[in-house]
Amino acid sequence: MSTLMESVAPAPPARRESLLRALLRNRSGLIGTVLTLLVVIVAVAGILGALPYDPAAQDVEAALQSPSGAHWFGTDQFGRDVLSRVASGLGSSLLVASVSVALSGSLGVVLGILAGYFGGVLDRAIGVLTNVLFAFPSLLLALTLAATLDRSWRTVALAIAVVYLPIFVRVARGPVLTLRSADYVIAATATGQRRLATLFTHILPNIRGIILVQVTLTLSWAVLTEASLSFLGFGTPPPAASLGVMVYDARALSSVAPWLLSGPGIALIVFVIGLNMFGAGLRDVVDPRSGVRR
């Protein structure tokens, strides 16, 4: 009886705090949190324009300078400051990745919960949708969508959201299948709670951890996909700086100015490693293998 009461009661706020503390005690979680925070600060500075130089300002006299005290990441062939451009590029990466994961995550989780909880025709229809979206290699689907719609950062975010939608559907659906026959869910229904209310009070809180892990991992994939689309010429359009475009442009000058390649390259890798380690730490803390307890 006491276990039933415990699981029915909503998680007290103190438990949330301990999740963060547990994450910081985890080595991967700590490194991931620090790296991600660092990158997010730089990216937000890029979005707000709080940068040492205007990322678009040209200064022909300062063209192609190697990294120095004045220009930490050097300058490009137009004399633009690479660090400021990297920060601005990280800003668009962060923006596109967050918007796309927010879209695919919210819609995907809702679809997944509905499919898992109600089953039947609805489940099969959603299953076909996910199978169809999974049938396209993710980069190819994003590329096709981004190339057919008009070019703006919004369409890029939308294209990436479509690509990662089915993953959230699957991640949410699986545990719901088990949860819907859990004692306390049956008890809630038996006491007269409406099924839709049960979904949000008893099922959603229980899959929160797994979804949080998936959100972090998908953010890292979204960052990579956005950069790959930009590299191929179908990502965030100019004049906004983009890490993928910077890497593409650096190719021609790589023998005389390798810093044009290393600046955006290192920023991208640090961002994605940070998100991956954050996600790995979070997964250790949440541990989906220990069941659906959290």
Partner: peptide, 21 residues
């Protein structure tokens, strides 16, 4: 982890540049 975090376009560009240069 490193490999997972480095996109194909980046490793490809870096490798091709180093070998060519």
């Amino acid at each position: 982890l490193l490999v997972l975090s480095a996109p194909v376009f980046l490793t490809g560009t870096v490798l091709a540049s180093i070998l060519a240069n």
